[in-house]
């Protein structure tokens, strides 16, 4: 069963506001093998010219996942998470972000297309990240959905 395109494009994904936490940034650095002092110690980050620990380039993607049900939009569209692959990820950066920042993420599904020659569909989600009124980053996620909803594994 293909993804219901109209339903996907109309789906309201609630805004999320999150505070970037130092401890979580340290855990992310540790999990990605980043042992640079500026990724762990506030004093080192400041010595490096930042006001606090920096939000690393891909971390905005994680901010959206720190939610009770981060994949809820998939279940809303009857998409089985096990059939989803991450196809593409893009970030644009407008300014730096740091621990302590309160960031708001606004997401929407912007496209659903069938991939030629196979039982796959591509779902594109775009997210704007703001600090107060100021845009700080934008991201675009393309998910590859195999055997879209309805087929048993």
């Amino acid at each position: 069963m293909p993804i219901d395109r109209d339903r996907a494009l109309a789906l309201v994904i609630p805004d999320r506001t999150v505070t970037v936490e130092r401890g979580a940034l340290r855990a992310f650095a540790q999990a990605t093998g980043d042992d640079r002092p500026a990724s762990h110690e506030v004093a080192a980050a400041r010595g490096d010219g930042a006001p606090d620990l920096r939000v690393p380039p891909t971390y905005f993607f994680s901010l959206e996942l720190f939610a009770p049900d981060p994949f809820g939009f998939l279940s809303d569209l009857d998409i089985d998470l096990r059939h989803v692959l991450h196809g593409e990820q893009h970030f644009e950066y407008f300014t730096s972000c740091h621990a302590g920042d309160e960031l708001t993420l606004r997401s929407r599904i912007t496209d659903v297309t069938a991939k030629k020659g196979g039982p796959m569909e591509l779902l594109t989600k775009e997210t704007d990240v703001h600090r107060g009124d100021a845009p700080v980053a934008r991201m675009r996620t393309v998910l590859v959905v195999r055997n879209p909803a309805g087929s048993a594994a």
């Binding site: 979580a24 855990a27 992310f28 540790q30 999990a31 990605t32 993607f61 994680s62 901010l63 959206e64 996942l65 720190f66 939610a67 981060p70 994949f71 998470l81 989803v84």
Partner: peptide, 10 residues
């Protein structure tokens, strides 16, 4: 560790 730290618990 990455699942926990990145929030991707898939």
């Amino acid at each position: 560790l990455f699942a926990g730290a990145s929030g991707d618990h898939n």
